[in-house]
Design a binder for these strands. Structure first.
Lengths: 219, 219
DNA sequence: ACAATATTTTAGTCTTATCTAAAATTTAAT
DNA sequence: ATTAAATTTTAGATAAGACTAAAATATTGT
C-alpha cells in the first residue's frame, strides 16, 4: 500500500508519541507534534482508522494497529538510512540532515531502500545513535542510559541524544562530543545536577540539562 | 522560490515540449504529456503565468520565461544527477531509474544537490546520455556532432548523415537507424575507432567509417 | 457532586489540483 | 468564405487536507 505524505507523517508522529504516553495518544499531543490544529487531527485520525492503521475511539485517543506500526517503522527506517547516507557519503554534519531526511523518507521504492541499505553497509544506527529498523520493522534494542543517571567514576560511550535540535547538536560539537565518544563522570554536583566529565582526554563541565539529553552505553 | 510538485512537473513538461514545437506549446500537448485534461492545463498555466514562470496568451499556447526555464533546468539537473547516483552507486540498471528519479527530483535542498554532484564526480551526462545542466542552468550545448566524436555513455538522436549514398542509407536501414533514432555509445575501441552502440533497445556494432558519417544531436 | 476548565469533535469554509460539460475560439475543408 | 472540426477556455463540481467557531464530552477542584 502507498500512503500520502500527510498520512505517513501522522503515522510517524503517532509512533513517536506512543512510546512516551502509556495511554492512547491524545489528539492535542498529535496536533502539537504536527504543528496543526486538533480538529485537523480528528479528521485525519478517522481516515487512518478507516484504513486500519490506527485504533480510534472518540475522545479516547489513538493507538497504532500492527499494520500502522509496521508502516511507521518503514518510514523511520527510510529516514534513518538517508541520514546515514547524507553524513557518511555526502559529508553533511549530523545537525544538518534531519530536514532533508524528512523529505527523502517519503520516496516510494522498496528496491531503492534495499540497495541503499547495502550501499551503506547495512548500518544498525543513524548518525544520532538511533537504531535503524530492519526491513521487517525489527529494532536492535540496546539498553542505554542517560548520562545524568551515571554515578561518579562511571563511564560509557555516547550512543545517542534524546533531544536532537541543531542547537544542542552544535553545542555537543563544541564540547567535542559525538556518537562513539568515551565519557567518564569525574564529579557530580548534588545541588544543581551539573557534572565534570572526561571527554576523551580533556575535562569538561556540563549542565544537568545536557546530561539529561545524552544517552550513553555502559558496559 | 519553492514550487509545488505539480508546478515543477508542468515546468518540466513545458520545457521538453518547447524543444520540439517551434511555436508556443499547445495546451493539448501539455495535457497529453502530463496525462491530464486540457482544462486542468489551462488552470495551471494561468497560475504559472501569475508567477512569471511562463508567457501565456489565451488560445496561443505557452512559452517559458527566463525564470521558468531556469527553474525547469534545475529540476532536470536534479533528475539526471539522481539517475547517475542510482546507476553508478546503487547499481540500478539504466532502464529502472526514471520513476525513482521522478520522485527524487522534487527534494528541495541546494546544498544536497551541490554535495551529490561532487560525490558523483560532477558528471556531464546521465545514464541515458542526456546532458546534466550545471547549477546555473547551462547545458553543454553541443549542436549536431559526428557519432564518432561522442564519448562512451554519451547519447543522442540521429539527425542526419554526412555521406548520403544509397549504399550507406541502405546499410543504416539494415541497422535500424534512421532520422530520430536514439543512439547511445556503449563502448569505443581505441585502435580502430569501432563502436558498440545502443540503437533503441538493441546493441549494434559499427565501424569508424560509419560513425564518421552519422550526425547526432546530443541535447 | 457539580461547576469550571480543558479537551475533543462537529459543522461549515478554504485552497490546491483535478474533473466534466458546455461555450468560445481557432483551424481546416470544401 | 462559410461551415465543419478541432482546440482551448470557462463554469461549476469534487476530493484531500487544513482551518475557525461552536458544540459535545471529559477532567478537575472544591
Amino acid at each position: 500500500m502507498k500512503y500520502s505524505l500527510s498520512e505517513e507523517n501522522y503515522l510517524k508522529a503517532i509512533y513517536h508519541l506512543e512510546k512516551i504516553a502509556a495511554t492512547g495518544v491524545a489528539t492535542n499531543a498529535i496536533a502539537e507534534q504536527m504543528e496543526t490544529k486538533p480538529s485537523s487531527v480528528t479528521d485525519m485520525v478517522k481516515k487512518l482508522s478507516e484504513k486500519d492503521l490506527v485504533n480510534y475511539i472518540k475522545y479516547q485517543g489513538v493507538t497504532l494497529t500492527e499494520k500502522g506500526r509496521k508502516t511507521a517503522l518503514t518510514i523511520i527506517r527510510k529516514h534513518r538510512l538517508w541520514e546515514v547516507f547524507l553524513v557518511d557519503k555526502l559529508n553533511f554534519h549530523w545537525d544538518q540532515v534531519h530536514e532533508i531526511a524528512e523529505q527523502l523518507e517519503h520516496i516510494h521504492s522498496e528496491e531503492l531502500i534495499s540497495r541503499l541499505d547495502k550501499f551503506l553497509g547495512e548500518p544498525d544506527f543513524d548518525p544520532h545513535g538511533d537504531p535503524i529498523p530492519d526491513k521487517h520493522g525489527n529494532i536492535k534494542r540496546t539498553e542505554k542510559k542517560l548520562l545524568s543517571d551515571l554515578d561518579k567514576n562511571q563511564g560509557g560511550v555516547c550512543v545517542g541524544v534524546k533531544e536532537s535540535s541543531a542547537e544542542f547538536l552544535q553545542y555537543l560539537d563544541k564540547k567535542k562530543i559525538t556518537i562513539g565518544t568515551k565519557i567518564k563522570v569525574l564529579g557530580k554536583e548534588f545541588f544543581d545536577g551539573s557534572m565534570v566529565i572526561l571527554v576523551g582526554k580533556d575535562q569538561s563541565f556540563i549542565s544537568k540539562k545536557t546530561a539529561e539529553n545524552l544517552y550513553v552505553q555502559t558496559n
